[in-house]
Every structure is written in structure tokens, then in C-alpha cells.
Design a protein around this nucleic acid. Structure first.
Lengths: 338, 338
DNA sequence: GCTTGACGCGCAATCGATTACGCATTAATT
DNA sequence: AATTAATGCGTAATCGATTGCGCGTCAAGC
């Protein structure tokens, strides 16, 4: 079958060529409504021959439905942070897989939230049926406000008392505890937490570490190493902090795998060996952790599973159901870095 | 300022409340056309107060322009291959960064090409101003046909004589040569190529390796280890192939970094040490290569730069210019695996 | 032979915003 | 004072597809 590729722009042109109305062409091509089989076949053949593709924008406008989901990455104050960050990357990849499975497309938008409206601008733009947000960043309040009036919204992040917005995430405090306990079991006595301590998720992880350290009677040895999130920034931060610290840690919990990589590099640069001199635990369970030198012990948030849950919840919310959030049980994966 | 969030759905409602026509509201909010300053301020305040957001779908339909770029990942016959593959992931991340820089959004669509229309379905859907395709896969012919009638299209992939579609990629044959030459300089005498050999890009890389091996008079030692692209599949493929091969290679060029990781794992599983027993070179220059055990020597395609070029070319093509493709000079990054 | 209903299809409204055109009103010009 | 120009804003068409309503035709039912 040859294809003509005459410029067929819309239904109307096909309708004229077929000698029917646009309504009939629409019904014939979408398979809805009653159309004579012969007519339908004729129209379908014509459309195929002329290389016609429906204008999805027009369809979306009319149907008020898009089969597209928006994915937003709020960058908070970390302006440097890129979408190409391994965590966001892994997450968007998993989300894309899960959405593709259901025939949904993914509209990716990086946002630097300046006002309370950063979600709604996309949500109410008519371009998406629902919105997924990766990370609560410093936008917890904004997310609460938005969730009150926009239902098809699912966030990757933590759960807090009275929280309104639907979130999927791991039990951060528990994860923090697991990491700290593991280090103590390995014999560490001077535990440090490295990474951002702002934001609800990091804050909880840090809190979990604090609890365990205190319970073990090692409170005096707790060292706080506040760093940026991003790999290179974390690297130089930690370098400075370790040089300055009066008390060198023998075990470090990093707030994220990406930070852990920075930590391990900095330790290497300062001549410390991992895990011999200092043991390091990450947090996230990124696929690359397994490939590192040494392979990274980490608190696995099971991101692929989490992405699947997010999409599942979102679909139920798009359908009108008031699906509640879910917490994932973190799993400690012990590898070479401890 | 309090925000009401009465359900304001469209311009019309604002127009009624403001006592003006929708035309005026539109002009006031977009800043086009002549509107009295006072009226404009009044309308803007009202819109802000009521939490109004324009319906972008309607705007796109009317303006025939979307500020959105489609990114397509053709999966060829590799049905297993996910969007979460590190290569696609890195690439989409870089593209997202470059597009965000220009205020464009990214519509991600995974495609399994069944017919010649997989690009046009998106291109002519009215949802995007242009299309980026990551990888030529087995769709070279289809891309040629499409490029003939759809201009705002840029592909990541190779260049071939008479090629019509605009592509950005590295000089694959040259890259293959660099990798092979490096192994020979390191003393390797039995060179293997591991990875897919189908598809234009891999084919050229393989060809480059062949040339150098032949020029060095080592043609008899050339070993071909055809594997799948994906990490785990490559791992098991290469495991079988190495067990079966009569001639064990002492240097392996992998067609891609992802394949290289599979190769290194398989070698480890069989008790070979890298680089002591076998040296391995990857191809791509993925960020994770640096973090591997051992760090991966690789032919760097400079993906971030390439993504920037793709976006740049696409913008020029959207503007009507007939921008030609560009080839990136690959750079050999020597690390621990050789 | 008349009624009923299924079928096939067209008419026209609709989704929400943009914009060409034109009509008043007011200000500037000679 | 008359003419011209600038300003402010409304009317209505437009982008391209979907769909409720209704009309005509033909076959089945009684």
C-alpha cells in the first residue's frame, strides 16, 4: 500500500473526500457510535492512505482528558541541582516505565517554586490528567494547600501527622535507625550524619540516627556534617567539614546515595579507606550503588516499586477514588562500604 | 493577599466578573494588544485572587504552538529494554536540562515501532513543536522517510552517505578505532567486540574495531561476541559466549557502557580479573562509568554536550532553518578497566 | 397496511483561548 | 472647527475534534 502524504490536516478534509460529515469520520476512526461497516472501512482506508493523524490537542480539549501525567521536580533552594541528578533520573525512569505500561505519556517539567502555584499552573493547564511530584523539598506547606483542592496528586515523600497530601515514601525515621544500628553493630562508636538536614525526609532520617545513637549511649559521639545534596557540592562540603572536625567519625550515615558517593570520594581524597577506616551507609537504593567502589551499603527505598505505587494511586485518584498514601518498608542492603 | 480558589474555569468567568469581554481579559493577561492600564491591573488582580490559570491546551490549539518537545525512545526488537536504562536515562536527563533552560517542556513517549508512523503520530498530534529521537535502532529507513516531510526532527545517532534526517552523534567508526587501538597499545592481541552488532551505530563501532585489528595484523584473533544491549541480558549472553569460545580474548571492546558492565561482571563470575587478565573498554561515557569497579575506560560521546546540540538544532529547525546534523569527536577516557 | 425500532448519518454546539476587524470615544494636529 | 490619529474594547471567527439530538430509511412485527 502506497501512502500519499498529501497534506491532510484535519477531519474535515477527509470528510470532504469521503463525501460524509466530520461526525461520521470521527465515529469511524475512533470506533464509537454507529457507522456502517462499509463506510467505516472506506474512511479508515482513506485516512491511512492519506497519512492522517488526529490532532490530539483538539481531542484533549474536547474530551477534557489527556492520557498524560505531569511529573514535577521541585528544586527548592538548590538551584544547581539538575534533572540529570541520579535520584531524579532513576525515579523518572521508573515512573515512565510504569506510566507507559498503562498507555500514559509523561510530561516532565522542572520547577523552581517561586510562589504557591507551581503545581496548579500545570495541574489546571488542561495538559495533564494528574500530577506526580518527586520530593517534598521545602514545599511541604504548598503541597498541603494544593492537595486540599486538587485531588489527582501523588507525591514522593514522607508522611506526617495530619498530612493531607497523598504521599508514597519510605519510613525515613525507621530507615535512619536501621542505618545507624547497622554501623553500631559493625563496631562504630563515632557516628556522623552527612547530607542535608532540612526538608522533611532528610530531617526524619537524621532524627532516626540521633535516636539510635542516643539509645546506644553514644550521644557524645554524634557528629553532624550538613552538606548539599548534589554529588560534587557534597564532596567539597564534606571535604571541608572533615578537615575541620575535632572528632573524626568511624561511621557515616549519608542522607542519600548521591551524598554517600560524595562522602566516599572525599574520604578517599583525605586518605581514609572505606570501610576499613570509616564505614559509610547510603540511603535510596539507587541501581548504581551496586556498581560503586566499594559497593554501597544502603537503605533501599525500593524506588521501582514505589514508582509503581505512585502511578497506581494516581490512577485511582484520577478515577475519583480518595486513595490514601502508602509507606514503604525500607530494606537495608549490606554491601562493601560497611 | 488571600486567594479565593472559587472554581474559576475559564476566561469567560473572569470576563463576566470584571465586566469586560473575554478578548480583553486575554489581552490583559497575556500582555498583548492594547488595554487600559487600569483595566489590565484590575483584571490581573482578579485573576490572581481567583487562582485562574489559562487552559494551555486551548491556547495550544489556537496558536498551533506548544512550547513542548517530544522525546521518543524507539525500542526496536529489544522489548525488554526499559526507559530506565542508564543510557536513555542519562540522555533524557540531559535533554530535559537543556530544554528547561529554554522554557520548553518534555513529553516522553516510549514507542515500539510497529509501522512507519511511530514518529508522525506524535509529530502531527499537535502536542509538540518538534521531536527528538534517541537512537536510530532498526528504524533508519523509517527515519529517512519521515525526515523527508517532517522538518523539526533531530535524532541521536550516526551519519551515513546521503542521509536525510538530521542527526547528532559521535563518529562511531573513529570511536571504535580509538578503543581498539588503545587495547593494542596496552598489549592486547586477541581482541573481541561485545555487544549488539545490528543497527547503524553499533555496526560502525564494530567496523572500526575490525579495521584496526586487521591493520595491526591481528585479524586472526578477532573475536565476535554478539550480545543484547541491556545489562542483565548482556551479562548472561557474554557468560555463555565466553564459556563456549575456543579463543579467550585478552581485550574486549564493548559496544556500549551498559554492555561493558555486563561484560565485566561476567568476567568476574568466570574468575577473570579486569584489567589484569582481560582489559575492557566501554562506549558512551556515561557518568556512572567513573564510579564503577574498576572505573571504566570508555569512548566518551559527550552526551551532555550532544543533548545541548540536539536541542539547539531542533530549535533552529522549529524556526524554519534547515540546520544540518553534527558529528561529535569521541574522546577516549582511560580509567582502571584497561 | 400500519407501527415500532434499529440503523446510519448529519447538524450544530462545545471544549477555552486567541486575534483580525471594526466601532466608538478621546486626543492631537493644522 | 474640522480632520486625523490613537486608544480601548467588543464581536465573532478560528483552531480540530467529539457528541447529543434528531431525521430519514428500511426491515421486522402484528
Amino acid at each position: 500500500m502506497t501512502t500519499d502524504y498529501t497534506k491532510v490536516r484535519n477531519l474535515k478534509e477527509i470528510a470532504e473526500l469521503a463525501g460524509v460529515s466530520t461526525a461520521t469520520v470521527s465515529r469511524a476512526l475512533t470506533g464509537t457510535g454507529r457507522v456502517n461497516d462499509e463506510t467505516r472501512a472506506r474512511i479508515a482506508a482513506l485516512a491511512q492512505k492519506l497519512g492522517y493523524h488526529p490532532n490530539i490537542v483538539a481531542r484533549n480539549l474536547r474530551k477534557q482528558k489527556t492520557s498524560t501525567v505531569g511529573v514535577l521536580v521541585p528544586l527548592g533552594h538548590e538551584d544547581i541541582q539538575h534533572l540529570s541528578d541520579p535520584f531524579f533520573n532513576a525515579m523518572t525512569g521508573f515512573l515512565a516505565d510504569a506510566l507507559a505500561e498503562l498507555g500514559y505519556d509523561l510530561l516532565l517539567s522542572r520547577v523552581i517554586p517561586r510562589d504557591e502555584l507551581w503545581v496548579e499552573r500545570l495541574a489546571n493547564s488542561g495538559r495533564v490528567d494528574g500530577v506526580l511530584v518527586i520530593g517534598q523539598s521545602n514545599q511541604f506547606g504548598a503541597l498541603e494547600a494544593i492537595a486540599r483542592r486538587y485531588r489527582p496528586l501523588v507525591v514522593w515523600g514522607g508522611h506526617y501527622p495530619g498530612q493531607i497530601h497523598c504521599a508514597v515514601g519510605s519510613q525515613n525515621r525507621k530507615g535512619g535507625r536501621m542505618a545507624a544500628r547497622h554501623l553500631i553493630e559493625r563496631g562504630c562508636r563515632r557516628i556522623a550524619f552527612a547530607g542535608p538536614t532540612e526538608g522533611p525526609e532528610f530531617g526524619e532520617r537524621f532524627a532516626g540516627v540521633c535516636e539510635v545513637v542516643a539509645e546506644a549511649g553514644l550521644g557524645d559521639g554524634l557528629i553532624r556534617l550538613p552538606t548539599h545534596f548534589e554529588l560534587n557540592a557534597a564532596y567539597s562540603d564534606i571535604l571541608d567539614l572533615l578537615r575541620a572536625t575535632p572528632l573524626m567519625p568511624d561511621g557515616i550515615v549519608a542522607g542519600a546515595d548521591v551524598s554517600a558517593i560524595g562522602v566516599i570520594r572525599a574520604l578517599g581524597a583525605l586518605g581514609y579507606r572505606v570501610p576499613d577506616d570509616v564505614r559509610v551507609v547510603g540511603y535510596d537504593g539507587l541501581p548504581i550503588g551496586e556498581l560503586l567502589t566499594p559497593p554501597l551499603t544502603t537503605v533501599d527505598q525500593q524506588l521501582r516499586h514505589g514508582a509503581g505505587l505512585m502511578v497506581d494511586l494516581l490512577m485511582r485518584r484520577i478515577a475519583g477514588e480518595d486513595a490514601p498514601g502508602i509507606l514503604i518498608d525500607p530494606v537495608l542492603i549490606v554491601r562493601g562500604s560497611t
